[in-house]
Nucleic acid binder design. Structure first.
Lengths: 191, 191
DNA sequence: CTTGTCTATGCAACGAGTTGCATACAAAGA
DNA sequence: TCTTTGTATGCAACTCGTTGCATAGACAAG
């Protein structure tokens, strides 16, 4: 078994709650998608493959007011495959930060021209942080949240705290980047 | 133009210093590879394509005691392509954290079984942090570092500070994850 | 003298991920 | 009525990225 992380992300999401490809795609825009993205194309393809392999069961669900859907659930072999994967070691992630490439590239262009772009990223990450914090209040720390969290909720919460920490760190770093760009711009005016 | 971030990472690296595919692969194990990874296969393929497209020039360099190499440099159209890309907006990155999938999956398995894996990641990130800090001392903050940094060095430094901040944040989060796993394990003993 | 390591390049095959397009039904609004 | 938005699924083509394998010269260790 190589990567296949999407397969496992789908298995986890379907164990948390069975659903259609469309619904999974929605979830990948929210919660689980905060740390693993996927398009609907990818999801439909993987669902089809896993169903053909017997890891998932499909149920046609007629709906009123909207097209029928295929609801997928995790079958016993799917759950076994997930358990096997959970016990395998995985490689620690390496970063993939395109903006960092741009920042280093700015040495061969006008560094000041990058300021607007960095500010745009700063806003995007600030929005994401606000979104995460709202979700945390709603589901875990607010008055409407379940009083004692169960194990699954504790785990979802700690993953969300990771997202929050990531956004805060990124925002602080982008402040550092902006200060650096301004400092360079002041010292060496644009060519 | 789609993603092509590797193309641009290679252009930046070759502008910083011309080199062969092999040398680039070495650099992708260090500095530039801290935030953008690539295997030698990918690098050779992209170098070939970019040279065919006239973005790079190749020079056969005979060497003694080792095989000849092809040294690539950025040609004018390559530099123009990089400048164009630097002025285009890019999407803020979304996370891709496989370990987070595992943590949520642990709700359907024994959470305590994940502790060793998380500890392994903790060690890997601590090692990476130590490595970054050593690089920072060597190149930027130590006594052997150039006294006033030029713009390019300032930009390299701020990118490295981003890597350092990322590793520190990740280590703190993994501490949080471990505490959570222990708390859950104490409350609900393994099935 | 054989094995292993380092430099150096590359092919072939596969799997992962993206983009564009297409279909179809329903509801809401202009 | 016509367009837009949302639900729901999917094909085809492409690019990106990984893995395994292969070659080849130089050097060092056993």
């Amino acid at each position: 078994m190589r990567g296949m992380a999407l397969d496992h992300a789908i298995l986890v999401s379907l164990l948390e709650m069975p659903g259609s490809g469309y619904e999974l795609a929605r979830r990948f825009d929210r919660s689980i998608g905060y740390f693993w993205t996927a398009t609907h194309q990818q999801i439909y393809r993987v669902l089809g493959r896993m169903a053909a392999d017997g890891l998932l069961t499909v149920r046609e669900v007629p709906q009123q007011g909207r097209p029928d859907k295929k609801e997928y659930s995790v079958a016993a072999p799917g759950r076994a495959a997930l358990t096997r994967w959970l016990h395998e070691p995985i490689e620690p992630e390496s970063m993939r930060h395109e903006l960092a490439v741009k920042i280093r590239g700015a040495a061969f262009d006008d560094p000041a021209a990058l300021i607007r772009e960095v500010e745009r990223h700063h806003r995007a990450h600030s929005d994401r942080l606000a979104h995460y914090l709202a979700g945390e209040r709603r589901d875990f720390t607010g008055p409407a949240a379940p009083a004692p969290l169960d194990a699954g909720q504790e785990l979802q919460h700690v993953v969300l705290r990771g997202g929050i920490a990531y956004e805060r760190m990124t925002i602080a770093w982008l402040d550092d980047v902006l200060a650096t760009l301004h400092r360079i711009g002041a010292a060496t005016p644009p060519a």
